[in-house]
């Protein structure tokens, strides 16, 4: 057993797109993920945050090998799974599962809850103790659904209940790692809390590790042990939740945190907010040097020529920036 359940080393995922028609030879490359280092320990929750289009979902899907990684290495429990074939990957599939963002799209509308959860057993040829039906009902019970609802179709459930079905499906094979791709962002706030608490409880009971992809910082702060901040396919800052939220060192992290509203009008009026100008640059044509240089307020000549190296600026806190913010 390795120290970390998951290790990503310089993971890259580039998508080739053909500009033009059938006979076109012109190729463009979207660098969705461009060199991501990340580790998840046993029983740890790592939050992956960043704005829309920064590649955080792509990281999650590449870890699940839904996308074939372009470069870099992925170690699952110490074993290299980077370029495993579909067949060789199968034993690992039962140990890592995924929860999806949109519970209305992630369940096949023509399957019953029973068949949805059962499919994991069928694919991996698992015959749980006491039979599949009992295992399915135990799972439904575990995620807080009525075990009698086994014959119902997904459309008969609310969003939060559907997300619980998705969680039950992910838990069916007792995985060690769960990649949660924005599992609560499609839900109402009250339901979000329930689902986040459910994930928390399951982690305690089953010793799960989570890669928690999200853009809602308050949810990430609540659930994560460590947080990785991404921008345009690259990691900007990695830190424990506490130090990231109390003492962000990368300008982008600081800007991201300052976008979170504070529910106290007095503080809200007094504090100085950092408002980033412009949009995320196109990942087809990222800026030279530091990728954040188009929107950063601290840029100097160096930022436009040199790519900042990832350095450990404090114990357990790494950033990729030439001019880090001072520690709080």
């Amino acid at each position: 057993m390795s120290e970390n359940i998951l290790e990503l080393k310089g993971l890259k995922k580039h998508f080739k797109t053909t500009a033009g028609g059938f006979f076109s030879r012109e190729k463009a490359v979207v660098k969705a993920v461009d060199g991501v280092d990340l580790t998840i320990g046993h029983g740890e929750t790592v939050g992956l945050v960043g704005e829309s289009g920064c590649g955080k979902t792509t990281v999650g899907r590449t870890v699940m090998k839904i996308y074939e990684p372009t470069e870099g290495a992925m170690l699952f429990d110490g074993e290299d799974i980077t370029h495993l074939s579909r067949k060789d990957m199968k034993p690992f599939r039962s140990q890592m599962q995924m929860i999806f963002q949109d519970p209305f799209a992630s369940l096949n509308p023509r399957h019953t809850v029973g068949t949805i959860i059962e499919s994991s057993f069928i694919i991996h040829g698992v015959e749980p103790e006491g039979g599949r039906k009992k295992a399915i009902q135990d799972l439904l019970d575990r995620v807080g659904l009525n075990p009698e609802h086994i014959n119902r179709f997904p459309h008969e459930f609310s969003g939060g209940q559907r997300q619980r079905i998705g969680i039950a499906r992910a838990l069916a094979l007792r995985p060690k790692l769960i990649v949660a791709d924005e599992p609560v962002s499609a839900l109402d706030v009250s339901i979000q809390a329930q689902v986040v608490n459910l994930l928390d409880d399951l982690q305690k009971e089953l010793g799960l590790s989570y890669l928690f992809v999200a853009h809602d910082l308050s949810v990430v702060q609540h659930i994560s042990d460590r947080v990785v901040v991404m921008y345009l396919g690259k990691v900007m800052e990695t830190a424990t939740t506490e130090s990231l939220f109390n003492s962000p060192r990368h300008p982008y992290t600081k800007a991201l945190l300052s976008a979170v509203p504070i529910p106290d009008p007095k503080i809200e009026r007094m504090r100085e907010r950092i408002i980033l100008q412009g949009d995320l640059p196109s990942p087809m044509n990222p800026p030279a040097g530091c990728v954040f240089n188009t929107r950063c307020w601290k840029t100097q000549a160096k930022c436009f020529t040199d790519v900042p190296q990832t350095v450990e600026i404090a114990p357990g806190q790494t950033i990729a920036c030439h001019f880090p913010e001072p520690a709080n």
Partner: peptide, 13 residues
Amino acid sequence: RDFVMAAQAQGAS
């Protein structure tokens, strides 16, 4: 759709 991706993640052929 996500349910196809879910099946891929489960290891379905």
